[in-house]
């Protein structure tokens, strides 16, 4: 690549490989040990890293094969949380919503090992980014039975994730993404301000590229306030909401880089190359190509492996042609 334009990336998760799903079920029934499970998820990480490289993605991720979900995984690795009871998500589907029962604290790096594995497998063939759930979302998706205010809890979590970020940076991670899907579901300026302060703590003194990923919800809730966040890149969904997000960000002086969702992860239909090109052209009308990072709207977890791979391939094919045309 002569000039780094339209660098393709992913949001983070990749469909869990079937043998990981089986292994997790066995682990829950205590039929295999934690170490055996780890071996299996590590093998899956290797496979999904290869698959993203094969699809031609410039900045890949570890695929989150080892993460059961984006809340409990972190709550289990931060002190001050305890396991909660089952809470309904929909129909007859439940999750164990964690409870903050005392002051939260850092125990050990939570994502560094997986970053290093992905980096090792990649061996310079692509860049590797690492992502974790942000302080606002971790707090918002847990019960708070310890702190007098949500803000205090969020800011303490931010201090923990700042350590995580520094650990990742120390190991050479060039691109760190903070996932904050809870942010756009709240329509209060006070909530956005809590998150702004939290992100400022997380990214303080960090030289690696920092990004915030937000999906679902109403993006009117977070603009223009989000532009004041101390972050390099804002990663959002566009295709699923028929590019309503573009209409919102167009209204402001968009002073960040943009993670641009150019395929929909909520539909099994694989978009055509032409469609994806047209989608990306919409972003090119408001930002220069070096500031745009084409990627799927969100993580690919809920798709089948085959469709996820095809969606990534169509992004890189579309970008290849666009680069030649620009």
């Amino acid at each position: 690549m002569s000039k780094k334009i339209l660098q393709t990336t992913v949001v983070g998760s990749y469909p869990r490989l079937s043998y990981v799903v089986e292994a997790v079920a066995k682990y829950k029934k205590k039929l295999i040990s934690k170490e055996e499970l780890k071996k299996i998820t590590d093998h899956a990480t290797t496979e999904v890293v290869e698959e993203q490289i094969k699809a031609g993605i410039d900045i890949i991720a570890d695929g989150e094969q080892y993460r059961e979900d984006m809340e409990v995984y972190f709550a289990e690795r931060i002190s001050g949380f305890k396991e909660g009871d089952w809470i309904r998500i929909w129909g007859n589907n439940y999750y164990r919503k964690p409870i903050v029962h005392k002051k939260v604290g850092f125990i050990a790096p939570m994502t560094v090992e997986d970053y290093l594995l992905a980096e090792k497998v990649t061996a310079g063939r692509a860049q590797v980014k690492q992502m974790y759930t942000g302080p606002y979302t971790i707090a918002d998706w847990a019960f708070n039975d310890a702190y007098d205010s949500k803000a205090d809890l969020v800011l303490d979590l931010a201090r923990i994730l700042h350590k995580e970020t520094k650990e990742l940076e120390k190991k050479g991670c060039p691109y760190i993404q903070i996932d904050e899907p809870a942010l756009s579901t709240h329509n209060s300026k006070d909530e956005l301000e809590i998150a702004r302060q939290a992100i400022e703590i997380v990214t303080k003194g960090v030289k690696a590229k920092t990004a915030i990923h937000i999906c679902y919800g109403d993006f009117e809730n977070i603009f223009p306030g989000l532009l004041d966040f101390k972050i390099d890149l804002i990663d959002l969904e566009f295709t699923n909401n028929q590019f309503k997000t573009l209409d919102i960000i167009k209204k402001y002086d968009f002073n960040k880089e943009l993670g641009f969702g150019c395929v929909d992860v909520h539909t099994k239909r694989v978009e055509s190359k032409e469609e994806v090109k047209e989608n990306i052209k919409k972003a090119l009308k408001i930002l220069p190509p070096e500031k745009i990072y084409p990627k799927p709207d969100c993580g690919l977890k809920l798709l089948t492996r085959e469709i996820a791979f095809k969606k990534l391939c169509v992004i890189s094919e579309a970008v290849k042609e666009l680069r030649a045309e620009l």
């Binding site: 809470i87 919503k97 579901t185």
Partner: peptide
């Protein structure tokens, strides 16, 4: 149709 978040909850509806 598809699942969608119910207000600001980690709770969904079709």
């Amino acid at each position: 149709t598809g699942l969608i978040r119910y207000y600001d909850n980690n709770f969904y509806y079709r």
